[in-house]
Amino acid sequence: MSNHEYDNTIICRCEDISRAELHKWIDQGLTTVDELKRLTRATMGPCQGRTCRQLILQEIASRTGVPISEAKIPTYRQPLRGITLGAIADMKLDEEGKPHEE
């Protein structure tokens, strides 16, 4: 897909990053999600790439011609979903460090 019809399509909706902006950086040689993330903030929002990571991988593949199967996938990290600092602080742990039911 090299047409410009979709250039304004938002790929990372947490951080408002368009397809055209990603292409600009991919063309400058940033061809991994990790590199694009650090300079554009794509995947850095509340969803942490759960929505856009696959879309970005697709854009990199179509732009560089390197198949997704060969792409470097960023590290998946905790927490799985956003959780408040208060909820974590209020959690009681037993001696083994497991959550303790009151």
């Binding site: 850095m44 929002g45 509340p46 942490q48 590290t75 990290r77 905790q78 927490p79 956003g82 959780i83 408040t84 600092l85 208060g86 974590i88 602080a89």
Partner: peptide, 17 residues
């Protein structure tokens, strides 16, 4: 941090590294 800066308890952690 919830002890030092109490209102931060309402913020969601999205990532750690």
């Amino acid at each position: 941090i919830t002890n030092m800066l109490p209102p931060l308890r309402y913020l969601r952690v999205v990532r750690q590294w």
